[in-house]
Simulated scan of single mutants.
Amino acid sequence: MTAQDPFVAHRGLLFTVAYEILGSAVDAEDVLQESWLRWADCDRAEVRDPRSYLVRTVTRQSLNRLRTLARRREEYVGEWLPEPLLTSPDVAEDVELAESVSMAVLTVLETLGPVERAVFVLREVFDLPYGEIAEAVGRPAATVRQIARRARAHVAARRPRVTVSRSEQQAVVERFLLALRTGRLQELLDVMAPDVVMITDGGGVVAAGLTPFHGAELVAGLLARASGITSDFAPVWLNGAPAIRIGLDGEPCTVSATVADGRITGLYVVRNPHKLTRLDEPAQLSR
């Protein structure tokens, strides 16, 4: 029996690394294609640890891609949100993995520089040794330690401070889905925290807010109006958490949520159709 090629064996891991660094499944797939070509051309006899070699290769290609994307994202119309990924409920069983691919954390990672983001992902999510990370990002190990410390503090200061159980998250999102289906303002208000924030991403392609919406009354009013023009609401698992898929004017829209104290505290609404092309088959994520 022929042994499985290491690239194929580790593909889920490699995709996860690229996606967390880039926040885009489309770009992550492009990075994997580029990395596969480099893997196919390398001298396998010189590769002592295929997994480490492949992670380094994918990281370098992801950094190259991230730098080329920087200007495009600076010119992006309105708020930029990560590309939502359809995932199986099983992803939520790995709590650290699920949190690392959550819309909330990926949005925070967007505020890091390219090298800081790669270092954070490789260290905090995949627990790679500093020496391996140093090789991947082309910096001395001592510098990588400093970068990791700064990135960790930066993310800790900005990520949601309250973590809830999978069952509580699911229960609150189900209440939210029911409120959306009824379109009743009070039910929407009851399921949201007073200081809820809603971020919408239309990419200049479809209508969306250019800045975040703040406050339960404003957000509930907007959602109630949206409920009045569609009845196409469905539960779905996105980025390792329960979420909602909506059909608006024949186009998909996804809503991911953060939860604390039994209420919705944050909503991430993706309407940009270019980011909603991978909602039919669950992504294979692994650490």
Rank of each mutant, 00 (worst) to 15 (best):
T16S: 11
Q146M: 04
A179T: 05
A134Y: 05
L248Q: 03
P114Q: 10
Q284H: 04
Q284E: 09
T57H: 08
R145M: 00
R158Y: 05
G209F: 02
N272I: 03
L248T: 04
L188N: 07
D195M: 06
Q33V: 08
R139L: 08
Y53I: 03
L22D: 02
R11M: 12
A171E: 13
A171L: 09
P252M: 09
G183S: 08
V31S: 07
T68F: 15
G247R: 06
A216W: 06
T59D: 05
R56C: 14
R150H: 08
L14I: 01
D280L: 05
S62Q: 15
L63V: 14
K275M: 02
A179S: 11
V31M: 06
R60S: 12
P212H: 11
G262D: 02
L66V: 04
R71P: 07
A25Q: 05
R51C: 05
M198H: 03
L63K: 12
G209H: 02
H274T: 00
V173P: 09
R287H: 00
E251Q: 06
R152E: 01
V26Q: 02
G202F: 01
D43H: 14
D90R: 05
H10V: 06
V47R: 08
R184C: 07
V119A: 03
A98E: 10
G203M: 04
E187T: 06
A226I: 09
A25T: 07
S102P: 12
T211Q: 02
L112I: 06
V121M: 04
D43T: 13
S167I: 12
L180W: 00
D190L: 12
V77M: 13
T211N: 02
V219P: 04
R184Q: 13
R263A: 05
I199P: 00
R44N: 13
D41I: 13
P50Q: 09
P282R: 05
C253F: 07
R158I: 01
L86K: 00
F233V: 08
L69C: 07
N239H: 07
A134L: 07
R44P: 15
Y130L: 11
V58H: 09
E168V: 09
V259C: 04
Q284T: 11
L112K: 09
A179V: 03
L14F: 09
F7L: 09
V47C: 14
H154D: 08
R158A: 03
D190F: 11
S231R: 12
A156N: 05
E74R: 15
E93M: 11
L14A: 11
T163M: 04
L109G: 14
A98N: 03
L13H: 14
I264Y: 03
G250C: 00
A260L: 00
R152F: 05
A92G: 14
V121E: 00
A157Y: 08
P114A: 09
W237F: 15
Q170K: 15
P235M: 10
V137R: 03
V206D: 04
Q170L: 12
H10A: 10
T211H: 05
R181N: 04
A92S: 13
E174A: 08
S167T: 14
A243P: 01
L180I: 02
R56F: 02
L180A: 11
I133Y: 11
R150I: 05
V47E: 09
A118F: 11
L22P: 04
A224D: 00
G113W: 04
V196I: 07
Q186D: 10
L180P: 07
T200P: 02
D261S: 10
T87L: 03
T2E: 15
R287A: 01
P6Y: 15
A98Q: 12
I199V: 07
G215R: 15
T2D: 15
V162Y: 01
